[in-house]
Design a protein around this nucleic acid. Structure first.
Lengths: 165, 165
DNA sequence: ACTTTTAATGTAATATCGTAACAGTTTAAC
DNA sequence: GTTAAACTGTTACGATATTACATTAAAAGT
């Protein structure tokens, strides 16, 4: 008999209130940085805030556009540096099929991120199924391959979009 | 009890003879084009030949470099057009984590491609496990998500590289 | 055979995504 | 306070991919 525990799925609903996500994530970030003695600088805070305010993936240059505090346009590398930092901390994920970035919806939960990408509303959720990651690990090992990293992106239609046609 | 059939794994061994791969793939391509009444033009043949001659993924511009027959340098769009065609035919796969392309190793076998990417030797194999794709499908559906396309890339160390340290 | 339609090519320009290099500044550690 | 490490500012550039449009070649219809 297979393990049938409920999946920890997170797909953002339409009526979803983003500001609470943002606050939660900023809090998590601050705490994590304190714990690891890392610096949560202005750029990093700002980039995380921008990403967390959208459940649609943002490109690095989209983020950059929203970084002109002081009217000054920042160089691309500024966004990429902050993104690298946030990704290493597990607060942000990169979607390789879109060259874009989303905030993590399961911070601190030790997951191999698997993404559900709705090609209609463009929202992105996390499936994060242990059954999937374990299946991949087992089958790869059986094939003589030692897995370091899994990259799973699932493209389709989310529940709300399917409902509303 | 779970399905324990053998996996149809393909990871290119080091002593592998590429020229037979190339010929097989060109043959498959010709046949498929005849069947679907599509044109297997010079560019398309050449691009497929270039990709099939390497089990390491090639970038579009790598391919382009090998396309200077007649000494003339081709425009990028030439490579991208041929690649689109070959990908639609299922003869070539795109690796999103590398922005690169590999020849399909399981033409005509109706598979959801899952890639094994060795970060040491850079070779790429296909896992193509139905168990994995079914697990993803089931868990996504359970999460209310309708799957159109799966993208699975597994980064790690292949058997031969693990052996030789 | 000739016309019409569709598909593929040639060519130039440009958009989008990402990194290297290095000098200067701030912060933390001693 | 001095030193070492991390972060920032800035410029330049490299890598990846697409748009647009004129031209040519192939297939389909008559």
């Amino acid at each position: 008999m297979e393990d049938m525990e409920a999946l920890p799925v997170r797909f953002p609903s339409r009526q979803h209130n983003h500001s609470s996500c943002v606050n939660k994530l900023l809090g998590d970030a601050e705490e994590e940085c304190r714990r690891q003695k890392l610096r949560f600088t202005e750029h990093r805070r700002k980039v995380l805030e921008i990403i967390a305010s959208s459940h649609k993936p943002l490109g690095a240059y989209d983020i950059l556009e929203q970084m002109n505090f002081s009217g000054r346009r920042q160089a691309p590398v500024v966004a990429y540096r902050a993104l690298d930092f946030l990704i290493n901390l597990g607060l942000v994920h990169r979607l390789n099929s879109l060259n874009a970035f989303v905030a993590c919806m399961a911070v601190g939960e030790d997951h191999t991120a698997q993404f559900l990408i709705c090609r209609q509303c463009k929202n992105v959720g996390e499936l994060n199924s242990n059954r999937v990651s374990e299946r991949i690990e087992k089958d790869a090992v059986e094939a003589g391959f030692q897995v370091d990293q899994q990259l799973v992106e699932i493209i389709g239609i989310c529940y709300e979009c399917a409902e509303s046609g």
